[in-house]
Design a protein around this nucleic acid. Sequence first.
DNA 1: GGCGCGCATGCAAGCGCTTGCAGCCCTATC
DNA 2: GATAGGGCTGCAAGCGCTTGCATGCGCGCC
Lengths: 343, 343
Amino acid sequence: MARLTSIDDVARASGVSTATVSRALRGLPNVSPATRETVLATAEQLGYVVSSSASGLATGRTLAMGVVVPNVSRWFYATVLEGIDAALRRVGYDTILFNLGLKGEDRERVFHRSILRKRTDAVIALCLDFTPAEREQLASLGHPTIVVGGPVPGLRHLGVDELAVARAATAHLIALGHRQIGHLAGIPEPGLNKRVPQRRRRGYELALSSAGLSARPEWIEPSDFQISGAREAALRLLRREPRPTALFAASDEMAIGAILAARELGLDVPRELSVIGIDNHALAETFGLTTIAQDAFGQGRLAAELMLEELAGAPPRVGQLHVPATLIERATTAPPASRAQVE
Amino acid sequence: MARLTSIDDVARASGVSTATVSRALRGLPNVSPATRETVLATAEQLGYVVSSSASGLATGRTLAMGVVVPNVSRWFYATVLEGIDAALRRVGYDTILFNLGLKGEDRERVFHRSILRKRTDAVIALCLDFTPAEREQLASLGHPTIVVGGPVPGLRHLGVDELAVARAATAHLIALGHRQIGHLAGIPEPGLNKRVPQRRRRGYELALSSAGLSARPEWIEPSDFQISGAREAALRLLRREPRPTALFAASDEMAIGAILAARELGLDVPRELSVIGIDNHALAETFGLTTIAQDAFGQGRLAAELMLEELAGAPPRVGQLHVPATLIERATTAPPASRAQVE
DNA sequence: GGCGCGCATGCAAGCGCTTGCAGCCCTATC
DNA sequence: GATAGGGCTGCAAGCGCTTGCATGCGCGCC
């Protein structure tokens, strides 16, 4: 592989010192307009690109952000990742992906301090479950860190208020007149943040009890956060009698699973069964799904911007950062059919 | 930020030179077992991690692979990305993500030679459409490059044989006895490889003509590769009379859109309409979808391994690399209902 | 007309690591 | 008991860039 053109080549070709080239290229002051222009032109002509290793070594900055994700195929992670990358790309930062894998076989490699450090200026972690050792390593990394998606004790966190979101979803069903409300609950998946399904379930229970209702255990059916698993869970739940008139699913993918299940059972949504989810997943609109929307892309972007600000010297904002979530009413929720008779 | 521990710290603490530390840590020969053990222990104790900038500068290797993707939220890209990352992670390589975005607003930033070079040892690009200038930049990058997913003239490519896959899918429908076969065709999306939808459609046409059938223009309905768009396209197609008895969708997501559309129209799948897709998407099983499966994860892994081999000095394998695809029969295809009567 | 100041530029010392080369010691060989 | 050879180790020169400091120039000011 031929030697790439270095700053010396540019310096020689434009008849100035490397120091001047460096300053000119980075837009630093104290470079005459004429010189700057010459340098820029020669650099362009020579196809010069700064070596990130060399400049990283000299400055101590890598201009790269580590992003730790459990996987990249689920909507939330993929979308947050895109938000992060977009924000970083704007300012010339690179995204270094650390895909832990759901099965977690790579966790140790990432966390055994071998990777996160020295290659990134900051780290954004998505909604993972961390062991105390991992948490400590993240915290002691010596550079800004934030978790997006699910609260992790001891680490700064950015995301929706899971409890409030779940309450709002359930409350919407209650407000429509439903009294028999089931819940497709998330299960704690290995490696993923356990708090998210827990809080969503707790929010459901709180909303019910606030309305003087109580959760019937047989109307709470757990499954993973996937469409297929939720479909099966919903089939189990809906085959039981009596059947709830509405279902709060812990995520849109689960809600879609519920809709599929309902169709298979010949139940009309929303006449015979209302369904609400959380997320505003890409497919939510296709299914006409009523949901509590969260802006995953925006969360990613915000997290990245926070990190960049801190790297630029801004004082760290501590504590939990809650981003808003809003109800989007579509076609899967309606007053219970029975209600018309009751009234 | 406190200075991180450097190789000098380890050297001093273990009473040897930095050269020896470097050799010991990297498992190089000519280090006595005793010394190596001491060094390893002190390094561990001090929490030493090599600075990728410094070692990158010294060796000319960054130990990072650039991965250029159009987006990360579609199944194929996400899955290939996971395959790549898994293969890289195994050998300590990092994945640097370049998310172009479908709208392509960041393309220039990536391609204006400012990013790809000097930070990565090799580049894997996913199924994108490149301008001639971009192709040239990729080719002249001076390090190994490969495209996964769709053939790009002038660049090495790895993926299924699109034409053959589409023929196989269509041929399966023909073999079942279908004579009226429609096609949910992909449209060339901005920034994405146009050849993929084109070849899939061409394969469909070839399969038909091989069987003495001809494609009826009104049975070919184009849409994007998403569930929602395909659903609408399928609704349009299926509302027309006469209606085909089978549909070959250019991807599983499109096939799922078709299934949703059929259900909405009250058509029984597969009795009144057979549907076949391509991919074996994560949702294919949930929908009982018959499909031609391609191993996206494996393609990513293979691409990464090829790049790693070449970086290790192996001679580059040139030419197109076709990976296998296999028919998976599930529940959305069956002989046409009319056939029983005909026979 | 001399002095001081500020701007543009260059010099050179790192940043932390790798690696060719040289040196040392210890063992095997004759 | 020399000698050669090999295994360990250290020295030091970079890798390509950034940046504090010094230099030199031209200008405005008194």
